[in-house]
Design a protein around this nucleic acid. Structure first.
Length: 602
RNA sequence: GCGUCCGUAGCUCAGUAGGAUAGAGCAUCGGCCUUCUAAGCCGAGGGUCACAGGUUCGAGCCCUGUCGGACGUGCCA
């Protein structure tokens, strides 16, 4: 149990911008969050010494550069309340905390720096992590609450492009992360399978489509048709009218038109699922806009009766307040066909009825920001206050993807290239080791791509660059996987990990050992931060830091033989192996929550 | 034009709530493998945080303006 203040519910049924409470929270009844617990302890000790409320202190605690310590407290903010200069406060505080059981405290000008006495940390964290195993960094704070995540959601009839990776992997990581925090998570793949595009596709297919090519080439042929349809449309504007009419026939339930649509859909879905399998991504439900094609009239009636609708330039729009120069939310085009906005309202209401969600997350690109704002506003105008629980988790664009054939880089093309490189590397270097090259090169190649995506802040754009995407050095998934493989390999060589309590923590005194333990202890807070901000990169960075700390420790044994993990001395070896096992668990858990495989050898 | 977001090392990006000497990776240069897998480790160089004002004890971060970029701006999704 957390000794400092009461444990609280996971924060988030309030907007992200209000993050005032997150720092003071404990992470679930098991309290397995050591570094955060120490931070709270430091704030509590400082608060007691200064006779100020802990809430005034905790927000100011920083993590400084490692040489300065583990936590740092600038004293400027208290100068006014205490009527003393910051430097004086820092001195007084340092004197009062000199007897601290947990920290070595030192004043540095107006700052107070605290370094954890490592003994207790080493004695408790390592067995705790090992005891928890695959429950490390999880909690049950979300228990009883359902979160639905709409992600990937490609349009059918086009292969997955590299840019689809973002929604797919961010959504997948959030699914895993929120699941680890105890939420009931439902992953939805909401296919763009309805709309004028399919009228366009059907029109071109009726004109020149070849059934045998469609069956043989699948989605690649659909793409070719799509490109041709667009060419035709530019050359001949009346083709657009034909397409529109054809889609209207689909909406009206015309069997022939629908049969063609169904065929396109089946072919696309089969292709998508093959890629999802490679990415180790799965959904609870495949749905699509087409699921909502029937209820449109009733829905529009409801909207008219609540928010209100009006005819604007021949189209039906939602009658609600708009900003200046803002286009209205359109429900029906002037030809009477519905638009995606209408179907999104239907889907949102349906999801609320099915799940009564705590959060409904849409992992969709930033281009659709206004659409989601309008969607929420329209629902609000209809009296659906639960729209506050909907979150648009937007992400940045991928630029510069027209490098190879055509206009997009296909996702599988990138995956294949990465897997091939991993295979070459392993074939060249792993002789003598017992490795399933096929399996591991797939895990390493794809893991590198996935991690490479997730390490970026989700809102920033990024440039597609083959060399950059396939880079396996430095801050990459490979580095983390490699660290995990090395931990596993050393444990294997030692004949397995020691018993959980069969080690003497006082033998772990090297700075590299203490540093590694601290990085492991920071992981749970990173999982929580990732969930809170819907930001997997928080976790990616934290797990990379664990890998670096591990690599430093492991390499230290090369320069200094007394630091070798497999030491001659039994007790020393056992203690070090316990640490390696804890590191292994942390690395594996971090990778898994990001949706990246953790091979045991590479 | 208007709206939203962005501008940090040669390149790609972090920088958490305004706090110490602005950090990583790539690239460059220099070290480290007869002993736990070098996809690694250590070190060096590299910055007017776009520009100009303002608020503050303190600004990469907050405010205003300028320049530059991305996205959006009704019958696509």
């Amino acid at each position: 149990m957390c000794p400092y203040g009461s444990c609280c519910k996971f924060p988030w049924v309030f907007p992200l911008k209000q993050r005032q409470t997150s720092r003071t929270q404990c992470f679930g009844p098991t309290g397995h969050n050591h570094m955060h617990r120490y931070e709270t302890a430091f704030a509590a000790e400082a608060a007691a010494a200064l006779d100020l409320p802990i809430d005034n202190i905790q927000g100011h605690v920083r993590v400084p550069e490692p040489e300065r310590g583990d936590f740092s407290l600038p004293c400027f903010p208290f100068a006014k309340a205490l009527g003393q200069p910051p430097v004086k406060i820092a001195q007084t505080l340092t004197e009062k905390l000199s007897q601290s059981q947990r920290f070595a405290v030192a004043a540095a000008g107006p700052y107070v720096n605290a370094t954890i006495h490592p003994e207790a940390l080493l004695a408790t964290l390592i067995p705790e992590v090992r005891q928890l195993g695959d429950r490390f960094a999880t909690s049950d704070t979300g228990q009883g609450q359902t979160v639905i995540i709409d992600y990937s959601s490609p349009n059918i009839a086009k292969p997955l492009g590299f840019h689809h990776l973002r929604s797919t992997m961010i959504g997948n990581a959030l699914t895993r992360i929120l699941g680890a925090l105890g939420y009931t998570v439902k992953g939805l793949n909401f296919l763009g399978d309805w709309g004028k595009t399919f009228g366009l596709l059907a029109a071109i297919y009726q004109r020149k489509g070849q059934r045998d090519r469609l069956e043989k080439e699948g989605i690649a042929y659909l793409l070719e048709l799509y490109v041709e349809a667009n060419r035709e449309r530019e050359a001949n504007p009346s083709f657009d009218d034909i397409a529109r009419a054809l889609f209207k026939r689909m909406e009206d339930g015309d069997t022939d038109a629908l049969e063609l649509w169904q065929l396109f859909r089946d072919i696309s879905l089969k292709e998508f699922q093959r890629v999802y399998t490679r990415l180790n991504v799965s959904f609870d439900h495949y749905e699509g806009e087409s699921d909502y094609r029937d209820g449109m009239d009733a829905l529009i009636e409801t909207i008219s009766a609540t928010a209100g609708t009006r005819i604007d330039q021949g189209a039906l729009v939602v009658d609600m307040p708009y900003g200046e120069n803002e286009p209205p939310m359109m429900l029906k085009k002037s030809d009477g066909a519905t638009l995606y906005a209408t179907r999104d309202i239907a889907a949102a209401k349906d999801r609320w009825q099915r799940y009564a969600f705590a959060k409904s997350i849409y992992v969709v690109g930033g281009e659709q920001k206004r659409h989601f704002e309008q969607l929420k506003r329209a629902l609000d105008a209809m009296g659906d206050a639960w729209q506050e629980r909907m979150v648009h988790v937007s992400f940045g664009r991928v630029h510069g993807m027209s490098t190879r054939k055509g206009n997009v880089v296909f996702l599988e093309e990138v995956l294949d290239e990465a897997v091939e490189r991993a295979r070459e590397k392993m074939t060249a270097e792993s002789s003598g080791r017992d490795i399933d090259i096929d399996k591991v090169s797939e895990e390493v190649g794809i893991g590198g791509i996935v991690f490479g995506d997730l390490k970026n802040l989700r809102t920033s754009d990024y440039n597609f660059d083959w060399e950059d995407i396939l880079n396996t050095k430095g801050f990459s998934g490979i580095c983390v996987q490699y660290a995990h493989a090395r931990c596993s390999s050393i444990l294997h060589r030692a004949g397995g990990a020691p018993g959980i309590d069969a080690y003497d923590p006082s033998l772990l005194v090297a700075p590299e050992e203490v540093a590694l333990v601290k990085e492991i202890g920071r992981l749970p807070a990173a999982v929580l931060a990732a969930a809170e901000g819907f930001e997997p990169s928080r976790l990616a960075r934290a797990v990379y830091e664990v890998a670096r700390a591990w690599n430093r420790y492991q390499q230290a044994g090369n320069a200094d033989k007394t630091l070798r993990i497999l030491a001659e001395d039994d007790a020393l070896r056992t203690a070090r192996l316990a640490l390696v096992d804890a590191a292994r668990i942390a690395l594996k858990q971090g990778l898994l929550l990001l949706g990246v495989a953790a091979p045991e050898a590479m």
